[in-house]
């Protein structure tokens, strides 16, 4: 039962993690992180942006790691384990989402391979969304509906 590091960007529902975006009711553009108030498509006047769950799987656009501890406000584990990052292109939305990668290193990753959304804890406790091997399960989260 862990709190998310940020509210409203992802949820864990019955052990399954979902990124929360918003979708414009007028032009159907999808946003992540979730945007409210007005659509950012310059050809759209829409102001009705409703929460939507994003596809949970996508293909790796690119990946890397941080061999040195990132500066604050990132909180580093002791001893530091390199953070792996992947930018994943979500099926059907044309949107690429950056996230930490769980339980995989750069040696396990390839551009174009499929990853699935999961969650994991930051070094100081709170949960963040992460990309993982398809089939991995998410950490439980406070207030999840199941």
């Amino acid at each position: 039962m862990t709190a998310p590091v940020i509210n409203g960007w992802f949820t864990v529902d019955g052990g399954t993690a979902h990124l929360l975006g918003t979708r414009c009711a007028d032009c159907r553009t999808v946003y992540f992180p979730p945007r409210t108030g007005f659509c950012r498509n310059p050809y759209c006047d829409g102001e009705d942006l409703a929460e939507t769950r994003l596809p949970r799987r996508g293909t790796v656009w690119s990946y890397t790691n941080s061999c040195y501890p990132p500066p604050a406000p990132f909180v580093t584990a002791d001893p530091y384990v390199p953070v792996t990052l992947a930018a994943v292109e979500l099926a059907g939305t044309g949107i690429v989402v950056l996230g930490q990668v769980k339980d995989l290193t750069v040696d396990d990753l390839r551009v174009g391979m499929e990853l699935e959304l999961t969650t994991g804890p930051l070094a100081d406790g709170p949960l963040v969304w992460m990309w993982g091997a398809p089939g991995a399960t998410a950490e439980r989260q406070n207030g999840e509906s199941s």
């Binding site: 690119s62 890397t64 790691n65 941080s66 990132p70 604050a72 953070v83 950056l98 930051l122």
Partner: peptide, 21 residues
């Protein structure tokens, strides 16, 4: 930085890896 520890070089590296691929 807070959520991902994503430094500037991390973004440069994403572009570099994509060129390799």
């Amino acid at each position: 930085f807070r959520l991902l520890g994503a430094t500037n070089p991390a973004y440069f590296a994403l572009y570099a890896r994509r060129r390799m691929a």
